[in-house]
């Protein structure tokens, strides 16, 4: 009885020590979560999330104060990647699935309303708006992230966000419908 207990204890102790040593030896340093999340966020510091810049947003998510869906320009892709890092269940989460795969938005300036006040291009985080004082401004769509910053500062409300115009190069066929197997007469 005593030998059995002793041997089991010795075994437990030995294995426990082994495990402890292994944990020390093979310890993998996890990269700081905030840095990783900051890399995923667009990095434009546009402020739409309400936090001071992308770094601030990453810190807020890491502390658990902010949802992973906080970044409108990043859209669904960014939300999914963030969810992967912080370990939120992203398969059926109502927030993420509610974020439909929106098309990328870009700013569009109504030239009739533009007074050439230069407020927008001073505010643009990616220098996507070009123009000069008293001149009509225009948006370089390739550089625009649709962050909404310019829309908010425009005094004449001449800027709106629109989905990026599709070109022949970027156009592709829609995903074909699921075959009949997935159809449900009730739902259809």
């Amino acid at each position: 009885m005593i030998t059995a207990a002793a041997s089991m204890s010795a075994l437990g102790l030995g294995l426990g020590l082994l495990l402890g040593a292994a944990a020390r030896k093979f310890h993998v340093k996890t990269p700081p979560v905030v840095d990783e999340m900051e890399r995923i966020l667009p990095g434009t510091n546009c402020g739409q999330c309400g936090y001071p810049g992308c770094r601030g947003a990453a810190e807020a998510i890491a502390e658990g104060g902010a949802p992973v869906t906080l970044c409108p320009p990043g859209g669904r892709d960014v939300a999914l990647k963030l969810a992967e890092i912080v370990g939120v269940d992203c398969s059926g989460g109502p927030e993420i699935s509610g974020m439909t795969d929106i098309e990328p938005q870009v700013a569009f300036i109504f030239e009739d309303h533009c007074t050439g006040c230069t407020k927008c291009f001073k505010r643009c985080p990616t220098d996507a708006i070009v123009g000069a004082a008293k001149q009509i401004h225009t948006v370089i769509w390739d550089a625009c992230t649709g962050c909404d910053a310019c829309v908010q500062v425009c005094p004449t409300e001449a800027i709106v966000l629109r989905s990026k115009p599709r070109t022949l190069q970027s156009w592709y066929w829609d995903k074909p419908d699921q075959p009949l197997a997935a159809l449900r007469t009730g739902a259809a």
């Binding site: 667009p42 990095g43 434009t44 996507a128 390739d142 550089a143 970027s170 592709y172 829609d174």
Partner: peptide, 27 residues
């Protein structure tokens, strides 16, 4: 059609990734 969709979608994702890097650089 499914393959065309997937190829287009992959190319779009790729270009978006590229654009995001560009954006970061610009910012």
């Amino acid at each position: 059609q499914g393959f065309s969709f997937a190829k287009g979608k992959l190319a779009e994702t790729e270009s978006r990734k590229h654009q995001q890097e560009e954006t970061r650089r610009l910012a």
